[in-house]
């Protein structure tokens, strides 16, 4: 009997059993590919520095340098600053996603995966999942250090729970857009340049680090309306004691939905492009 078993396997499944083609299973594929990206990140000093060290350095530097002048303007800077560095961290996560996506396209990994029985959307979703895990790690580090510097959730536990939710929604939208960018450009240096050209104006021409009232009056409408400021508004509404919640959350949600759609359409188009 034992000797016959291998022969039966070679001959195929016993009669009556369903033929089991290797079939893509989206959830498994995404989990496996996310694991791959997380391993790749953990072996890359640059990834660890940009996920953990840089966000901390920025939080500490902005807090140290600008706390006094902010207090003079009546702003408790650690409470104001934390949402800003959280948003900045999400941008770093997006940059990482754009580079990893471009690397996968350049190295032929994407083509290889498409030739296998792997779900078509799994490579992009796996990278997205890995980057979201990474951003949760960054958030944990920032919240711990922020708490040590005096940051508090003044609105109670329910609003505090909304904070990581909004951050992850922003992360999902921004990372998807960056994956689309990385897949569309596919040249590492150009990807780095492009992501920086997005990051600097959106981050610094926003009310993330300083209130919109500090900007020249002709810039103020732009600063107030752009998505980074809107997400910062939503995050701050969730940390404040008694701020109106519905309006900032709805506006931020609408922006994020739009960004996510843009990213999904872009990534879908770019991923199918022959390399």
């Amino acid at each position: 009997m034992t000797a016959a078993a291998p022969a039966a396997t070679l001959a195929g499944p016993p009669p009556g059993a369903a033929v089991t083609d290797p079939r893509p299973a989206l959830a498994t594929d995404v989990a496996v590919l996310a694991g791959r990206h997380l391993r790749l990140m953990s072996r890359r000093p640059a990834s660890i520095i940009s996920a953990i060290v840089l966000p901390l350095v920025f939080a500490l530097l902005f807090f140290t340098v600008f706390s006094r002048v902010m207090r003079r303007s009546g702003i408790d800077y650690i409470d104001y600053l934390l949402p800003a560095v959280v948003i900045q961290t999400v941008f770093f996560t997006g940059m990482s996603a754009a580079i990893l996506a471009a690397e996968d396209a350049l190295s032929g990994t994407l083509r290889r995966l498409r030739a296998m029985s792997v779900s078509r959307s799994a490579p992009a979703l796996g990278l997205l999942a890995a980057e979201l895990v990474r951003s949760v790690v960054s958030l944990g580090v920032l919240l711990a250090v922020g708490a040590a510097l005096g940051f508090r959730f003044h609105g109670g536990p329910w609003k505090a729970l909304g904070f990581p939710v909004v951050m992850l929604a922003f992360g999902a939208a921004l990372v998807t857009c960056h994956i689309a960018l990385g897949l569309a450009i596919r040249r590492l240096e150009a990807v780095t340049t492009a992501t920086n050209l997005i990051y600097f104006p959106f981050m610094l021409l926003s009310s993330a680090f300083t209130p919109a009232s500090a900007f020249p009056s002709w810039l103020r409408p732009l600063v107030e309306q752009q998505p980074v400021s809107r997400v910062a508004d939503a995050l701050r509404a969730l940390t404040a004691q008694d701020a109106a919640l519905a309006r900032p959350l709805l506006i931020a949600g609408a922006w994020l939905l739009g960004l996510l759609l843009l990213g999904v359409v872009g990534a879908t188009r770019a991923i199918g492009r022959p390399s």
Binding site: L204, A214, P216
Partner: peptide
């Protein structure tokens, strides 16, 4: 951008 955002604060 740093001038636009921080000049009035500093």
């Amino acid at each position: 951008l740093m001038t636009a955002s921080f000049a009035k604060i500093v």
